[in-house]
């Protein structure tokens, strides 16, 4: 079974985020890393390929400046190879443009199953994966908290407001996984060394046969007109508990007539 895992490479979330002052897009300068949200997809892909008794995991990513550090992390975890789409014309691409690029790249790997995260840590539009599925003409199951492949179909426990649904879907299909579905493995030293020589195919927009007008800032059809600080909440009262913390809360609740 061939599994493609979409992996986004993002700025380190530990570093404070900022907007580019010229374009108001999220700044994506500096080294990028594998989005934690996608580490679950990589782990899930590896486990599913393993239990299917063969097949391989291909990572697909779109990122600026030929960035591969996040891909290397996924390869070190055990993915066989990676496809990276990197092209200056992609700056400012929105979710739909990203989906067009990813779909074109994914097609080359002829997967039985495509995995992605329900939402990325930095963009969190959460629509890219279903857009990919629609472009590829595939069914999708989002918000999976458990995934099992049996023969020609995938069985998913899909999160709902009140619990979960059991959903069955024939392959090929796209599934998005929630955080915490599996415990992502730490790359071993051997894995890290092996990852250095695993193939990463780097493609441009032209290589994928896409029209540059569909992607990038031109394709995004929205413009940011204003960025302003939100109204800050009025500073509250912060007190150190000296054994009276609970009483303070009770008084506060009484004032609000909650008690």
């Amino acid at each position: 079974m061939n599994v493609v895992v979409c992996v986004k490479q993002i700025p380190d979330p530990a570093a404070p985020p900022s907007l580019d002052s010229g374009t108001n897009n999220l700044s994506r300068t500096g080294k990028l890393i594998l989005d934690d949200s996608d580490a679950y997809g990589v782990e899930m892909g590896l486990q599913l390929a393993d239990s299917a008794g063969g097949g391989e995991v291909t990572l697909v990513s779109m990122a600026p400046n030929g960035e591969t550090s996040g891909l290397r992390t996924g390869l070190a975890m055990g993915a066989a190879k990676a496809i990276l789409v990197s092209d200056d014309t992609l700056a400012g691409t929105d979710a739909l443009g990203t989906a067009k690029v990813l779909a074109a790249a994914i097609k080359r790997a002829e997967p039985d199953l495509i995995l992605a995260a329900t939402e990325s840590s930095d963009g969190y539009t959460g629509t890219t994966p279903v857009q990919v599925a629609e472009i590829l003409g595939l069914p999708s199951v989002t918000f999976a908290k458990k995934v099992e492949v049996t023969g020609e179909s995938v069985k998913v426990e899909r999160q709902t407001e009140s619990g979960y649904d059991e959903v069955e879907c024939p392959l090929p299909a796209l599934v998005t996984v929630t955080a915490g579905v599996v415990e992502p493995r730490y790359p071993s030293f051997k894995g890290i060394m092996a990852a250095k020589s695993k193939p990463v195919e780097t493609l441009t927009v032209a290589d994928l046969g896409l029209d540059a007008g569909q992607v990038g800032a031109a394709g995004s059809r929205q413009e940011i007109t204003d960025v302003s600080a939100a109204d800050a909440r009025q500073a509250g009262e912060i007190v150190v508990d000296e054994g009276d913390g609970a009483d303070r809360i009770v008084q506060f609740l009484e004032q609000l007539k909650v008690l």
Partner: peptide
């Protein structure tokens, strides 16, 4: 912004080739 709402909006956006603004 529910599970199904996001799925429908995403698919519709791709079908119509129009962006969808989220969040």
């Amino acid at each position: 912004a529910t599970y199904d709402g996001r799925d429908i909006a995403g698919r519709l956006s791709a079908k119509l080739d129009r962006p969808v603004l989220t969040n």
